[in-house]
């Protein structure tokens, strides 16, 4: 058993537990994106950053991959963590502004500006789909390809894979393509409608009926006679 301190509270966990799991056990919220229970932690999205250590030795680490150590001092919501988290969200949002998952995370963490060029990628390379396919579906039909700027997810040679089970698991876990968000003002880049409880869909006529994936959507509920 290992005892560590999270936000000033001592917690004793089993060896091999990650900082994220320990924090969850205490009830401290840490946003995650690429992490998924049942899949190997991959540490791709960096959203789960926490601060460990003290003073000038303090550093940011990804809690989903960091194993609990005896005596470790963790802060899950220090100013530095919050700043880093917002920046990471802003970057993720820039690459995938149509992802409802990321839009929601952004509004939840009060990301209010978008200073980066919007890329409209359809993937943030979080690796969830690859791990899902390999570890839960035992198919290994898709994988990472290329490097750096050219990194992408897909089947070998871009042809339909003969080992794919057509289970849809990869799409189900994808934070970028499972839920598309229409975010009504593309130039603003951040919608935040869902979190603000006054969705822009409400004011915009064209969105009257094709409203989003919120179920039940606050906007629609309010509008109902």
């Amino acid at each position: 058993m290992i005892t560590l301190t999270i936000n000033g509270l001592d917690v004793t966990v089993e060896k091999g537990t990650t900082v994220l799991e320990a924090a969850k056990f205490l009830g401290f919220p840490i946003p995650t994106l690429c992490h998924m229970e049942g899949l190997t932690p991959y540490g791709a999205c960096r959203l789960c950053v926490v601060e460990i250590g003290a003073g000038s030795a303090a550093k940011l680490v990804t809690s989903c991959t960091y194993p609990a150590e005896p005596g470790l001092k963790v802060r899950t919501a220090s100013a530095r963590v919050v700043r880093a988290r917002k920046m990471i969200l802003e970057l993720l949002l820039a690459s995938c502004p149509q992802s409802k998952t990321i839009q929601d995370l952004a509004s939840k963490h009060e990301v209010t500006q978008q200073r980066f060029r919007q890329e409209h990628e359809d993937c943030i390379l979080c690796g969830r789909c690859v791990h899902m396919c390999e570890e839960q579906m035992m198919a290994k039909a898709i994988g990472f390809r290329g490097r750096g700027q050219n990194r992408s997810i897909g089947t070998p040679f871009d042809v339909p894979s003969e080992v794919c089970r057509q289970c849809g698991g990869c799409m189900y876990v994808c934070p970028a393509c499972s839920l598309r968000c229409t975010y009504t003002e593309p130039q603003k880049a951040i919608c935040g409608g869902c979190a603000n409880l006054s969705p822009p869909c409400l004011e915009k006529d064209p969105f009257n009926d094709m409203m989003c994936y919120m179920d039940p959507c606050v906007a629609c509920e309010i509008k109902k006679p």
């Binding site: 290994k140 039909a141 994988g143």
Partner: peptide, 8 residues
């Protein structure tokens, strides 16, 4: 080894 890994 899976083709996906080798291709990667």
């Amino acid at each position: 080894v899976s083709l996906a890994d080798i291709y990667g």
